[in-house]
Nucleic acid binder design. Structure first.
Length: 893
RNA sequence: GGGCAACUAGCUCAGCUGGUCAGAGCGUCUCCCUUACAAGGAGAAGGUCGCUGGUUCGAGCCCAGCGUUGCCCACCA
């Protein structure tokens, strides 16, 4: 760090002579400087105040999308930068995910373009070498995009889920789970993807609505008998009839009770199967009789397990009927279906068919219809692991924001099922398991042990390694500690685990968040983070986005057009935790315009500093001016302290959208629109000038600090110009490491007073516009009524209204503000004014009535807090005065 | 079949766990190129906070029910 600080800040390509802020010319230089200077690395030592947040590892393949931009460049970087400024040792950890099947699909497509396919003899080793080549191509790309967003990630701690150290971690983790009996291999029904040629977990199975034919099929009685009704079942998958092993009915179904235990013949194959009962059967569906096919259906498999039924498999991994399918062998599953229907029809067993709208399971990666198969797979036993993870959230040790997501978490965790973690693809973490070809023993080495050479049971050296790899989420679940060097006991691990906050999209709460909590507790004995902040989805379809004809627009394009600051600002502004948001062009324009407003505030202040260099002398920029200050200066200083407190409070409360909104209102509405205008009078006044310049500098410095977390580039650009040749109290050289301000004392009386004065200004401006007076023309304003609080602010009112302001009665058109009568000297349009005043009087009377009613209400004075009652009384008085003034004015007209 | 969320100005959304709470941006209307900014400034119009009850001195904010929309979970063949 000491060395790093010596790197000089970049000479900004943007001078403050430019009227518009141009992000593209400063962003890269600043980021390079920040990164090379090591600003994003946590300090070597700390006092225990730390902030640790892991990047939700993006997939190396593909580009970032707007959801990433919101999470990474929005919430996460805001938190990281804010905590860094607070002085917390901040680690915002970088890293990328190997993305398992997604990456394999992407690379397979790329390779196919070059005519390279697995069919043409590409070996596993060759394929993996190709994968790594592509990883090296994609990774810098995604990392570059993170830099473009401005994310203050610690790049000196790189992480990639497939790097050797992570492979060792995954191996260790797998073996530990196995040795503790939490990982087992078993032949159970799993989702099989015919396209991807792999199994997948329940979470990766999506459901799509589809209408298919529902076939009613008669199963003949095995024994001749009389007067028995036909057994008819309903199925959408007649091709699986060949693997039927039973017929099930609900135990309480009166229609079937007499027939339970009797046998029917499975059509075509003529197998005798028994009629059994199971609670899982819905008597209301179809005929109430369900054909049981444990080999090809989830429900049936479970029913089969309960009743000790055999598993028959007639469909292979390629989707073709197996030899066991007899006459249908070799047909693919769709052909087999039509073929089966033909046969049933011919034999008179097809009773009828009708359309059925139902949810069909598909693989979320490719949309291929699920083919449930019974295959030996590795499973993580989730139930015992889930308990402590549920307790961690229930007890509040892990807090999920928004809170309603906690219920969703509990719901899933309480009903969690075992997790199928093996995948039949090549790209992924190896499974550290060997099978003995001689005795079928499963050989798993010790966690630090070498690959086994001999069977631990029969000593055979004919071992076969499990060719499967692990679900990509298996390694992601370890992210909070593998990034810190686990399983080694590294200094980073000791220092930065458990982490602080995990920010990610709510769509992966089960895939990732829940599993991190589970595995963090299992491996580390402690929760991985204490706060989970979940953001919503970003959509772009609602409004006409200039470039979004397609759905996916890369944040890069937005950054190039609007700048990273504007994108971040637009994404976070007015969002609430967990809510989906719409990024509209209107929001981007607003954000860009706000940046420009800030830029121009900066230009104005910098110009004053250059024009009046003596004002600062050798004072620190961020030293709060105290002496020789007029009301205007004392007012904006007080408001700035308020803004500091407010911004801090909103960030502490994770109210990021409000934080951005608030600062926009404050900077634009109060600093720019009100104070900068007031300061112009101060700059013209020899006695006020020095104080005004110092105030401008101080307020700008504060504003830049408060905004830096959301708009790092423009604030740094201005801070470097503001501080160049001057100094801050701490001698800061970059906003990245600058101190987040603590709120100083306020003068609320003064704020109140000036607040009223600004209301008076608005009234006077409205009056002069109504009267059609040219904005350049200086007018006279007279104030009467309850002028006690505005009397001291006449200068400010005069400045902002371009008027001479006096206390006393005037003759022109009037407006009543609170209990102050504002009158300008101008010709009156009596009719229009009467109409307006009558409207205002009606409103005022209504307000007065409500005040009176509230105060008169039984119980209010006794039960409401004193402060509330007092406030209401004061308001009542003011409203009385207001009504009186309006009535008088109308009387005069 | 369960569960969750949303419903606030024409549009997009805030409203921080009951007491200026009726807001912002965009859009609309009027005026203004005032030496930081026309990517700007000033002013104005615009909402009985989905509906119905309830709790409370007091409710967009809490409770109950209903309606509409969206999402999640689930073994309905």
């Amino acid at each position: 760090m000491a060395i790093a600080e010596k790197i000089p800040a970049p000479q900004s390509a943007l001078s403050h002579n430019e009227k518009n802020f141009r992000p593209s010319v400063v962003e890269k230089d600043l980021y390079d400087w920040w990164e090379r200077s090591g600003f994003f690395r946590p300090p070597e030592t700390d006092d225990g105040r730390r902030f640790v947040m892991m990047l939700p590892l993006p997939n190396v393949t593909g580009d970032l999308h707007l959801g990433h931009a919101l999470g990474f460049g929005g919430y996460e970087d805001v938190m990281a930068r804010w905590h860094r400024m607070l002085g917390d040792a901040t680690l915002y950890m970088s890293g990328t995910d190997h993305a398992g099947i997604i990456a394999q699909i992407v690379v397979e497509k790329e390779l196919a373009k070059e005519g390279i396919t697995k069919d043409r003899g590409l070996t596993r080793e060759q394929f993996l070498a190709e994968m790594w080549k592509w990883m090296d191509f994609y990774r810098p790309r995604i990392e570059q995009q993170l830099r473009m967003l401005g994310c203050s990630l610690d790049w000196s701690r790189p992480n990639f889920t497939m790097e050797p150290s992570k492979q060792r971690a995954v191996r260790t983790h797998f073996i530990r789970l196995y040795k503790k009996g939490l990982l087992y291999r078993e032949g159970r029904i799993v989702h099989w993807c015919l396209t991807c040629q792999t199994t997948y977990s329940d979470l990766e199975a999506k459901h799509v609505e589809r209408t298919d034919a529902l076939y009613y099929v008669r199963y003949p009685w095995a024994e001749e008998g009389s007067n028995r009704p036909d057994v008819v079942i309903a199925t959408t998958r007649p091709e699986t009839i060949l693997a039927d092993v039973a017929i099930a009915v609900h135990p309480d179904d009166a229609r079937w009770k007499p027939l339970i235990g009797q046998e029917v013949l499975v059509p075509v194959v003529e197998r005798r199967v028994r009629i059994i009962t199971d609670e899982a059967v819905d008597p209301a569906f179809g005929t109430g009789a369900l054909k049981i096919t444990p080999g090809h259906d989830q429900t049936d498999f479970e029913i089969g397990q309960r009743h000790g039924l055999p598993v028959l498999t007639v469909i292979g991994k390629d989707g073709r009927m197996l030899p066991a399918a007899g006459a249908l062998a070799g047909l693919d599953r769709d052909r087999a279906r039509t073929d089966m229907i033909d046969r049933l029809r011919k034999s008179g067993l097809l009773v009828k068919e009708e359309p059925l709208a139902h949810a069909l399971g598909v693989h979320d990666r490719c949309g291929t219809v699920d083919e449930p198969l019974v295959l030996p797979q590795w499973w993580v036993r989730m139930k015992p692991l889930a308990g402590p993870a549920i307790e961690a959230v229930r007890s509040g040790r892990v807090r999920i924001i928004p809170e309603f997501q906690e219920r969703i978490y509990f719901e899933w965790m309480q009903n969690v099922r075992d997790w199928a973690v093996s995948r039949q693809i090549w790209w992924g973490h190896e499974i550290p398991v060997w099978f003995c070809r001689d005795c079928d023993e499963v050989v798993v080495p010790d966690e630090d042990g070498p690959d086994p050479k001999r069977c631990t049971k029969c000593a055979s050296d004919d071992l076969r390694k499990d060719p499967d790899v692990l679900d990509t989420w298996f390694s992601s679940a370890l992210w909070p500690f593998t990034t810190l060097g686990w399983p080694d006991r590294t200094p980073d691990l000791a220092r930065f685990y458990p982490g602080s906050t995990l920010e990610t999209g709510y769509d992966i709460i089960f895939f990732w968040v829940a599993r991190m909590i589970v595995m963090g507790i299992f491996e580390m004995g402690d929760i991985p983070f204490d706060t989970v902040y979940l953001h919503g989805l970003v959509k772009t379809q609602g409004e006409k986005m200039s470039k979004s004809t397609g759905n996916v627009v890369s944040p890069v394009e937005y950054i190039q057009e609007w700048g990273a600051d504007a994108l971040r600002f637009a994404l976070v502004l007015d969002t609430a935790a967990g809510m989906d948001t719409e990024l509209s062009e209107a929001k981007l324009i607003n954000a860009r315009n706000f940046g420009n407003k800030l830029w121009n505030i900066g230009r104005f202040v910098l110009r004053q500093l250059e024009t009046y260099p003596d004002a600062m002398a050798d004072r620190a920029i961020d030293e709060r001016p105290a002496r020789e200050l007029a009301d205007a200066e004392r007012w904006i200083l007080s408001r700035t302290e308020w803004a500091t407190a407010e911004a801090s409070r909103l960030l502490e409360g994770h109210l990021f959208g409000e934080y951005v909104h608030f600062l926009q209102q404050f900077v634009w509405g109060e600093v720019a629109d009100a104070y900068l205008e007031l300061s112009k009078a101060g700059l013209r006044d020899d006695r006020r000038r020095a104080g005004t310049v110092r105030t401008l500098a101080y307020v700008l410095d504060r504003v830049l600090r408060l905004l830096h977390p959301i708009t790092p580039f423009i604030t740094e650009t201005l801070a470097l110009q503001l501080w160049r040749g001057r100094r801050t109290a701490r001698g800061e050289t970059s906003l990245v490491l600058a101190r987040w301000p603590a709120a100083g004392p306020r003068d609320t009386k003064l704020e109140e007073r000036l607040g009223l004065a600004l209301d008076v200004v608005r009234a006077a401006r409205a009056l002069r516009q109504d009267a059609g007076i040219d904005p350049g023309e200086r007018i006279r304003v007279a104030l009467s009524g309850a002028t006690g609080d505005v009397a001291a602010s006449l200068d400010a009112i005069a400045t902002l209204t371009n008027a001479d302001v006096t206390i006393g009665k005037g003759t022109g058109p009037a407006k009543i503000v609170r209990a102050v009568e504002v009158r300008i000297e101008a010709k009156r349009d009596v009719a229009a004014e009467r109409a307006r005043l009558e409207r205002e009087l009606a409103d005022a009377r209504e307000a007065l009535r409500r005040s009176e009613e509230l105060l008169a209400r039984p119980g209010f004075a006794e039960k409401a807090p004193k402060a509330v009652v007092e406030k209401e009384r004061a308001r009542l008085e003011e409203r009385r005065a207001q009504v009186r003034l309006l009535e008088e004015e109308l009387g005069r007209l």
